[in-house]
């Protein structure tokens, strides 16, 4: 109380310094967030504005009222030649690809990882190397022969041909192997003493224990499958098999099309192709981040 001047003067500079650096941090973060958001905002704006206006003036500052209309057109009117690739049909195919891929990958990966980690297997080392070599070469580098083989097997324009070749890499297997190895040894021992065989142990104990991991994997794999582009582009030539992401190419052509390009409709399709994976990632953020960052240890 006696020494008012010093008690005020001393903390002031520190307080101010901290505040400035904090404001700087926020400024950078806001700039970064805007950098990320800007393209989406432009997409939304043009999707809600009449095409003619966009063509004349480009994206404006205000959202328009055409979103409903464009949405209806995008979802239910076909944009291709055969009339089969409405937004709705592409959405369906995208869902099948995303869910089918995630499901297949997880089931197959868990089974293989279980065999590798929990059994005395004579060919364990060989199996391990055969499986994990696949981590080295992405599909893109063997895309043409994969296409040829899929064609030979008569799988062009089928869901099997779309999904199964994408599963031919061991990311999920590797992930579950890592996780199973981190499960305490004593758990399987206790279970064996409790009279649980391999199938029972898997169903009663290992699968429930892996729940979070399965969820995390599912999100990552769903997004990965949904976002596939090159493979679907090659394997699906019939419009009723197009996924949203594969359809982007056609959307581009619409955009470049005749008299008045149908920006609104095209952009609605682009937005629809983004919403499900983004929603999944945002809603299940903590699982997703955990799965992503733990898969590579």
């Amino acid at each position: 109380m006696a020494d008012i001047t010093s008690s005020v003067a001393v903390p002031a500079p520190t307080r101010r310094r901290i505040r400035w650096s904090l404001i700087g941090d926020h400024a950078i973060l806001i700039a970064g967030s805007l950098f990320m958001l800007l393209p989406l905002l432009v997409l939304l704006q043009t999707a809600s504005t009449p095409d003619l206006e966009t063509m004349k003036n480009g994206p404006g500052l205000y959202f328009g009222d055409q979103l409903d209309d464009n949405f209806r057109k995008a979802m239910f009117e076909a944009s291709g030649f055969s009339g089969a690739n409405t937004g709705l049909s592409m959405l369906k195919n995208s869902l099948i690809l995303g869910l089918g891929f995630a499901f297949g990958k997880i089931v197959i990966g868990m089974m293989a990882a279980y065999a590798i980690v929990y059994f005395r297997l004579r060919f364990a080392t060989l199996a391990f190397w055969l499986i994990f070599t696949t981590l080295l070469l992405p599909l893109e580098v063997r895309i043409l022969p994969s296409y040829e083989i899929t064609q030979k097997l008569g799988l062009l324009n089928t869901y099997t041909g779309l999904i199964v070749p994408l599963i031919a890499s061991a990311t999920a297997t590797f992930f579950f192997r890592q996780f199973f190895r981190s499960v305490p040894e004593e758990l399987v021992e206790a279970a064996r003493i409790d009279g649980a065989g391999p199938v029972k142990f898997f169903i009663d104990i290992l699968v429930p224990l892996s729940q979070t991991m399965i969820a995390a994997m599912f999100i990552i794999m769903f997004v990965y499958g949904w976002n596939q582009y090159l493979w679907p582009t090659m394997i699906t030539t019939e419009e009723d098999m197009y996924t949203l992401v594969r359809g982007i190419k056609q959307i581009v052509q619409v955009l470049e099309g005749n008299e008045i390009p149908q920006y609104g409709r095209a952009n609605v399709l682009a937005i629809i192709s983004v919403i499900p994976p983004v929603a999944v990632v945002i809603f299940f953020q903590s699982w997703f981040v955990k799965g992503l960052t733990e898969s590579d240890k």
Binding site: P184, E186, E189, A190, R192, I193, D194, G195, I205, L209
Partner: peptide, 16 residues
């Protein structure tokens, strides 16, 4: 192990 009529208590308990 299941057929030996034994029970075991582990260091880290190994509870499910």
């Amino acid at each position: 192990p299941a057929d030996r009529d034994i029970a075991m208590v582990f260091q880290n308990y190994a509870l499910y």
